[in-house]
Design a protein around this nucleic acid. Structure first.
Length: 218
DNA sequence: CTACCGATTGACT
DNA sequence: GTCAATCGGTAGA
């Protein structure tokens, strides 16, 4: 059994350390693209390649949950970099990676994954078969990986239950990053803080947001 | 206690 | 394209 888990994990490389998260949130959001989100539970191990993220800034960002200060709900966001911040919305869950503290808290929302390992487990949890829809959307990927309030505040810099790892597989390919406005936020729509792997069919969002909106035509 | 709302999703025209 | 279900967190009576 132990050997089988090790074989699955060979797809993923080293656990991403705290120093990676302890940097500017927009930089971390870009650099998390292509990394592997790993979830180990009783059901087995599930791994998805991160293809879409959003940055929520530590200051002046009215769309960020930290904007109005610390509460019981967003406490994890004010913890050290590398924690998971999991919050409920519309009767579902979404997950973030906590990043650098700059007077206030910042975090990266994981918006979509390309399923890699444990796909049958994800199918069972989601109750659907279609590979493209298993992890396309922040609440969908949390359902697929069984991420809920129990993992709010979880330390993702150790390889237990939930962490992010470098992709050390030989199949790893280069990609281009595109950005756009963040999805679903009513304020700060001018900020281009959504990042995704260009051309990935596993990216969520409206068609008009699949391309960067030009700031000025010139 | 009640009322309102949201970093969403899935069903429907 | 549109729209309502869903429910924990939060604010206010």
């Amino acid at each position: 059994m132990a050997e089988r888990i090790t074989a699955d994990e060979s797809a993923s490389g080293e656990v991403i350390p705290q120093a990676f998260y302890d940097r500017d949130v927009a930089l971390v959001a870009r650099q998390l693209l292509g990394k592997l989100l790993v979830r180990r539970s009783r059901d087995g191990i599930c791994i998805g390649r991160i293809v879409e993220t959003e940055a929520y800034l530590a200051s002046g960002d009215s769309a960020s949950h930290s904007f109005r200060g610390r509460t019981k709900k967003n406490a994890a966001m004010f913890g050290p970099p590398g924690l998971a911040y999991v919050y409920p919305i519309h009767a579902r869950y979404c997950m973030n990676a906590v990043t650098q503290q700059r007077g206030c808290a910042s975090a990266v929302l994981i918006r979509a994954l390309e399923p890699m390992v444990g796909i049958e487990i994800m199918r069972k949890r989601r109750g659907i078969d279609k590979l493209l829809d298993l992890c396309r959307g922040p609440a969908r990927l949390c359902e697929a990986l069984a991420v809920d309030r129990n993992l709010d505040g979880w330390n993702m810099t150790c390889s237990t239950r939930l962490w992010i790892a470098h992709d050390s597989s030989r199949r790893r390919q280069r990609f281009h990053i595109t950005n756009s406005a963040r999805i679903g936020v009513s304020s700060a729509q001018e900020a281009q803080l959504r990042f995704f792997i260009d051309g990935s069919p596993f990216v969520s969002g409206l068609k008009r947001l699949h391309r960067t909106t030009p700031r000025t035509k010139r």
